[in-house]
Write a protein that binds this DNA or RNA. Structure first.
Lengths: 170, 170
DNA sequence: TAAATATGTCAACATGACTGACGTAAAATC
DNA sequence: GATTTTACGTCAGTCATGTTGACATATTTA
């Protein structure tokens, strides 16, 4: 019991940002930021009878034309049964289309129809608008930090794949 | 078709970080970071037969002893029926306890039992550990940016309440 | 006393995840 | 060429978590 009054938990002041309280705040910011960020697109989706699961599939297919089902499964980390239902809906509404792979004809390569692209673009614009405002208010350095921390939150064994797909550094 | 090769979408290079592509990357980082951040605690929870919904309630009650149900509802933004089921489970397992409010006896103030505190602490430590690693690798400036951007993603009308609860600036 | 508030509860339903089992076509391997 | 593996689909059942709508009860406020 040396330091009588030390509000700092770990050790030096250079590590203030690693105090328990700061970590808890980070956790909670992530919760609330994520919650509200998604709520907007959710509204649009609900209006046309789709859910988040459809949105996620639509997004990654849109971003990655001719994506095999297996890769989409790896990105979303859900079971094929869960994805199956979602894809069935999207195919029935002609938002997504399939074609067999050229090299491997067992594969069903997924891509968006023009209507799918339109919806994808609409949702992406919504989300980009919100993200753009947050980025603008926070500034370029903050944006870098935002990505750095989130990148660190990704599982070690997933990070290479994810970074390769997302593109760019950090 | 003037600028033949302009990789920049909006206008100046000072706004590079607001290009569509950078915004998309931010969106995707948020998706993957959130996905993997939660997966760890999910495992612990599944092992004892609880889910994310229980975790969220446990967390905010733990952080905010004597929390009225109405406030928990406002934090989680779910219906009282959904919360009711979760609280019923937590009460049955004696992880949470209720007591009537002193000033307003209609209220049921929620707090954690010792067992609830133990579980809360265990889960929080798990999450803090992961967050701490990401923070440490990213550095203090990045942490600030992380919080700034997430704060900007929170709905305008929610931000004051949330910031008041989370504490600290930005 | 009447109205509003805080909370709980019953019932029905939707979404999106899961497990487990089985089927088929194409590719890869022995 | 026969066998095994792979990519994908599908049927069936279950679970967790959200929803709406209606109604009940106790307590506070007007």
């Amino acid at each position: 019991m040396t330091d009588v009054k030390s509000p700092v938990s770990p050790q030096a002041s250079s590590l203030l940002y690693l105090r328990e309280d700061e970590l808890r705040r980070g956790i909670e910011f992530l919760f609330f930021g994520y919650r509200d960020f998604l709520s907007e697109a959710d509204g649009e989706l609900a209006a046309i009878g789709l859910g988040r699961a459809h949105h996620r599939a639509l997004h990654f297919v849109g971003r990655n034309p001719d994506l095999p089902v297996s890769e989409l499964l790896a990105i979303l980390k859900i079971t094929k049964q869960s994805l199956g239902r979602v894809l069935k809906d999207l195919l029935a509404r002609r938002l997504i289309e399939q074609k067999p792979g050229r090299r491997d004809r067992r594969q069903r390569l997924l891509s968006l129809t023009p209507e799918g692209q339109a919806l994808h673009a609409r949702l992406l614009t919504l989300q980009r608008t919100r993200m753009a405002r947050a980025f603008r208010e926070a500034g370029p350095d903050a944006v870098l930090g935002f990505r750095k921390v989130l990148s660190g939150l990704i599982s070690d064994d997933e990070r290479p794949k994810v970074l390769a797909m997302i593109g760019g550094g950090a």
